[in-house]
Each structure stands twice: as structure tokens, then as C-alpha cells.
């Protein structure tokens, strides 16, 4: 078990051994996260490879304190992108959607400015909301909606029943809904 600071130091020195250690140490966790989002082994494996590439490209200049949140954020973004791509393929597959994809390549992140602003507002509101709720509620919320854990897994790791977890998640969602309305995001 390697320390995160040592791995990050290796990355700062551009030592490829760091990627091997990350794969060995966090590869399973990242694969599970990606698999829970994409539902496909090959896609999940591809997401993990993309995540390692992103780690190599972003550290340096970034210097995260902890690797797990950083890796989780990276791999889940890759997985969501893959999920959106696969669903757009399923939904569209027409010449029109192909043309849209071609035009999306010349736009930053494939989104317009309004969407980016709205996304930032949503992120800010979520951040504020997550800081307001109790830590145990936040942990369960993030387990479910960030790490995509199943209700059973959350119940097991928090020594709760599955029904209690469902009920708690529903209450948190309702609170979030009220908060978003209050912030005029809904």
C-alpha cells in the first residue's frame, strides 16, 4: 500500500511507475465506479485508461492532497461522458445527430456558454447544500449519487436497513429540491 503523497511525488517527477501503482492500488475501485455508470466492462476499462491518461496530463500542474476523490471525480466524469455518448448513439444514430457531434467538436466541452454557466450554478448550489446537511447524510448522498453505490451496499456499510437508506435518500432529495427552488434553479 503506497502513500498518496509518494504516488503524487512520482507523478511530479514524471515517473510512469506512479501510473502502475495507481492501477494496482485504485484500479478496482475506479473500475467499479465506471462499471456502475456505464454497465459495460469494456467501456469501464476504457474509462480507467482514460482516467490514468488524465492523471498523467494533469499532475503536474495540479497537486491534489488525496488521490481517491481526485481519481473518483476523473473516472466518473469519463464514465458519464461514455454513458452520454452511448445513449446518444442509441437514441440518434441519424445523420442529424452525426452532424451535431461534428459541430460539437469545435465547441468547448461540447456545451454552449449558457449551459456552462448553469452547470457552475448547479455545482455551487450543490456544494452549499452538501455543506448544510449532516455529515452522515452527506456521506450517504455521495455514496449513492457520486460513487453510484447500490442501496444494499450503502445499507451494509452504514449498518442500516435498505428501507431506511431509501427513506433517508428520499428526504435528502426533497431537501435538495426545496433548496434548488429557493435558489431559483428549478
Amino acid at each position: 500500500m503506497h502513500d498518496d503523497s509518494r504516488i503524487i511525488a512520482l507523478l511530479q517527477k514524471r515517473d510512469e511507475q506512479a501510473l502502475k501503482i495507481i492501477r494496482e492500488q485504485y484500479g478496482t475501485m475506479c473500475f467499479q465506479m465506471a462499471y456502475r455508470i456505464t454497465g459495460n466492462r469494456e467501456d469501464a476499462e476504457e474509462c480507467v485508461n482514460d482516467m490514468l491518461m488524465a492523471v498523467w496530463d494533469t499532475i503536474p500542474p495540479l497537486h491534489p492532497e488525496k488521490l481517491v476523490p481526485y481519481l473518483a471525480s476523473l473516472v466518473s466524469r469519463k464514465a458519464i461522458s461514455k454513458y452520454k455518448f452511448m445513449h446518444s448513439q442509441k437514441r440518434g444514430g441519424t445523420q442529424f445527430s452525426s452532424a451535431l457531434d461534428e459541430l460539437a467538436d469545435i465547441l468547448p466541452s461540447g456545451e454552449c456558454v449558457e449551459n456552462q454557466i448553469e452547470q457552475r450554478e448547479i455545482t455551487a448550489a450543490l456544494t452549499q447544500f452538501l455543506r448544510q446537511i449532516p455529515p452522515d447524510h452527506r456521506r450517504i448522498f455521495m455514496q449513492r449519487y457520486f460513487y453510484s453505490d447500490s442501496v444494499q451496499t450503502i445499507a451494509q456499510t452504514n449498518q442500516m436497513s435498505a428501507d431506511a437508506v431509501k427513506m433517508l435518500l428520499m428526504r435528502i432529495r426533497n431537501k435538495l429540491k426545496d433548496y434548488m427552488r429557493k435558489e431559483r434553479l428549478l
Binding site: M29, E65, K66, Q119, R138, R139, Q143, T153
Partner: peptide
């Protein structure tokens, strides 16, 4: 997607040891 951009301290729920 917005959840992926929240600060790391909110993401860090000791998931490595918890889950």
C-alpha cells in the same frame, strides 16, 4: 455532472475504507 465538480473535501467521505 455537477456533483463531479464539487470540492474534494465533500467528495472525500473516506470511501476507500468505507466502501
Amino acid at each position: 455532472e455537477a456533483l463531479r465538480d464539487v470540492p474534494e473535501d465533500l467528495i472525500d467521505i473516506d470511501y476507500e475504507h468505507l466502501s
